[in-house]
Design a protein around this nucleic acid. Sequence first.
DNA 1: TTCTGAGTATACAGATCGGTATAGTGTGGG
DNA 2: CCCACACTATACCGATCTGTATACTCAGAA
Lengths: 195, 195
Amino acid sequence: MTPGARRALDAASTLFYDRGIHAVGVDLIAAEAGVTKKTLYDRFGSKEQIVVEYLAARDERWQAFLAPYVEAATTPRARILAVFDASRDWAEANSAKGCSMVNAHAEVSDPAHPAYQVITGQKAWMLALFTGLARDIAPRRAAKLGRTLMLLHEGALVAHGLRIFPDAIDHARGEAAALLSDALRAASTAEEKRR
Amino acid sequence: MTPGARRALDAASTLFYDRGIHAVGVDLIAAEAGVTKKTLYDRFGSKEQIVVEYLAARDERWQAFLAPYVEAATTPRARILAVFDASRDWAEANSAKGCSMVNAHAEVSDPAHPAYQVITGQKAWMLALFTGLARDIAPRRAAKLGRTLMLLHEGALVAHGLRIFPDAIDHARGEAAALLSDALRAASTAEEKRR
DNA sequence: TTCTGAGTATACAGATCGGTATAGTGTGGG
DNA sequence: CCCACACTATACCGATCTGTATACTCAGAA
């Protein structure tokens, strides 16, 4: 990526997230990045493509941010809670308005829009992450547990973004912790029964 | 509200919800409603005002839709679960793209925007509803329980709107049911201890 | 009957939208 | 030396944006 393109994408990302996608024009992006519209269209081809790269890059940054949290945790339970820890820290610095994918989905409804797959793909990835981690705790209830964790997590992002109540992500983490304790207890009782 | 204004607001509501607020212009609203722009501006004064009334009216419709569900339930536990039942039925018919307040918040970030208070007010109302209903189950844990129910509910709306997995609202209802069983059990044990 | 309110139709203002065109600058590598 | 590349500057395109203006119709009520 050329320096101009880099600056343009950075500027677009901030503007899109803060003001919404349709509310931001290419002239503003160019001006904010110190770049001409010509450069924008030479590098990206269309505004639509800038939107796609904005979402894809943000998802990539989030995954890179998340990875060390999960890797540092030593138990299956801690790995799941680490996702909430990462979300809390990420939200503090980058996500005052909630999930960029959810927000983008509010403006990009057409499934044919190239950004649509980035959005749904990110959510599918998160669900698969929770479900995969849940498998190490309660293999037979992993699907159900993963979905519940997903609900808590998504709800927390919304609650945080709309400032419904303070420390929403920490609250969700607490509920997830209780949920995992129950699941672990249930799994071990089932284990004993089988013996 | 005059007949023309009624048609305009109905058309605007559908368009705003389906395509997003910034993506819909007043010309389109007027055309779709079979009304001239003159009528639009005579009745509403500005597009901003149409947005405000769209959100306020939708909230009002939701509350009217919800009320009989809650009233028909006979136990505190059933009243809470009735909210999820109402949400599921509402979402099927009116809410394929998730919560209109959350979606509007993605486009209207400025707290000075008159729509902002409608959005945050609706969320505050829902939190108060859950907390109030939770008080009849576990008075001392009502605040915490209300917030958890809020997280599950908001998460379910997102999961439904983005089609993360099927029957998200029913799943959330199931988790809420389990949560309430735990809370009831804990409350009755605490009651016995106090005796 | 006259007056008012709600509506139509149409045209326009000024700004901004996404996107393109032309022309020129500076820089690094073969 | 020269060429490819990244970029600047500026002007423009047609379309659309919110909002306003003029002129007219029609129904119902005082």
